[in-house]
Design a protein around this nucleic acid. Structure first.
Length: 195
DNA sequence: TAGAGGATTGAT
DNA sequence: TCAATCCTCTAC
């Protein structure tokens, strides 16, 4: 079952970021289906400096200001596409960066996209999982209950005690907001990014 | 219209 | 530790 629009509305962005752990992200790009269990997320809000939305609406981040349940995809460092899930109501710009997956379906397709022979760590990082899943900026603004990219409510059950909270990665410019423990991972999962 | 820099990655 | 690489955003 695809998660409905209501999943993405009406909870704090950190609560939804935690609820996304264990869910399944699925893409169908050029008729190729790939999927993976979400094992790492980061929450971003217009209220804090770590977020693209902090300084207000721009052409790049306008999807963040729309109603929750859409994909926000942008180019980072001119090299990598990043996939985010937009949450909550219009104007309350919040989004969740999907940072790591445990591959499920279409692993052969992922290997081909990544030019790799082994699936080890193939989706352990936001840039890598976007590429492996075939996600690019053409999906920016796409609703997550249509037929290109969606999230399913099965996967694995994550107990609250199995969720680890830490500061987010790569946002030193955010000052003390960089210390917010808004990065969530499944405890001891081998697919999470970095160390 | 120019200049700076980034929610990363992989190689050195 | 560092380069790749291309937008976006800001300031002039």
């Amino acid at each position: 079952m695809k998660l409905a629009e209501s999943f993405y509305i009406g909870g704090s962005v950190t609560t939804i970021a935690k609820k996304l752990l264990g869910k399944i992200l699925v893409t169908k790009i050029n008729n190729k289906v790939t999927s993976g269990i979400i094992v790492e997320t980061e929450a971003y809000s217009y209220k804090e400096r770590g977020s693209h939305a902090f300084k207000g609406l721009t052409k790049r981040n306008e999807v963040m200001f729309e109603r929750g349940g859409k994909a926000y995809v942008y180019l980072c460092y001119g090299v990598h596409e990043m996939f985010n899930v937009v949450t909550n109501d219009e104007r309350k710009a919040e989004a969740i960066l999907i940072r790591a997956l445990e591959p499920l379906k279409g692993i052969d397709i992922m290997l081909e996209r990544m030019n790799k022979n082994s699936p080890a760590r193939i989706t352990s990082g936001p840039g890598k999982l976007a590429k492996a899943m075939g996600i690019d900026r053409k999906l920016n603004g796409e609703e997550l209950w249509m037929n290109k990219i969606w999230i399913e409510d099965k996967g694995i059950k994550i107990k609250p005690t199995d969720i680890v909270s830490r500061p987010r990665i790569g946002i030193d410019y955010a000052g003390e907001d960089a210390l917010l423990p808004w990065r969530f991972t499944v405890r001891e999962n081998k697919w999470i990014s970095k160390k």
